[in-house]
């Protein structure tokens, strides 16, 4: 081997150019983790500085007629305003959760593509209802 060859600094290959099973030192991942952490914290501080979080209406103030839920339960609240409590508050959320929990078995029975479609429909319905609640109340 040419002795000068080993002295030459090795240019690291980009991740895409390497075989996916090739092993690399952890530091390469840590650098990416630090950059993502910085970006995520920037977004968090940006939201904190830019969007004020309001307080609730004081309990000692004149009573305001409210039927309110945090946005994470907006979808359930939207259904509760229209359908019976047992259906919109228990049956539909628990059924959806049961489908989510059994997704690996659905995949075995129906295949990955159909399972993805089931998951997508379920997600879009709940996310859609959340947006409906937030926009229409």
């Amino acid at each position: 081997m040419d002795p000068t060859e080993s002295d030459r600094p090795q240019v690291p290959l980009k991740a895409k150019e390497r075989a996916p099973k090739e092993r690399v030192p952890l530091i390469e991942l840590q650098v990416r983790e630090y950059i993502s952490t910085f970006l995520w914290l920037s977004l968090l501080f940006g939201l904190t500085a830019g969007v004020e979080v309001p307080l609730d209406t004081s309990p000692k103030a004149a009573a305001v007629s409210l039927s309110k839920a945090p946005w994470v339960f907006g979808s359930i609240q939207y259904l509760l305003q229209r359908w019976p409590a047992w259906l919109s508050g228990w049956v539909l959320p628990l059924l959806s959760m049961a489908v989510l929990l059994t997704l690996p078995w659905w995949s075995e029975k129906l295949g990955g593509r159909l399972t993805w479609i089931i998951f997508l429909i379920l997600s879009l319905v709940w996310v859609g209802l959340t947006f409906l609640y937030m926009l229409m109340g």
């Binding site: 991740a15 895409k16 390497r18 075989a19 996916p20 099973k21 090739e22 092993r23 690399v24 030192p25 952890l26 390469e28 991942l29 990416r32 983790e33 993502s36 995520w40």
Partner: peptide, 17 residues
């Protein structure tokens, strides 16, 4: 936190963090 990892773990699309 292993000392070495697979190159596949470096891809952003693997997890999107």
């Amino acid at each position: 936190r292993p000392r070495q990892i697979m190159t596949g773990a470096l891809r952003l699309r693997a997890t999107f963090c």
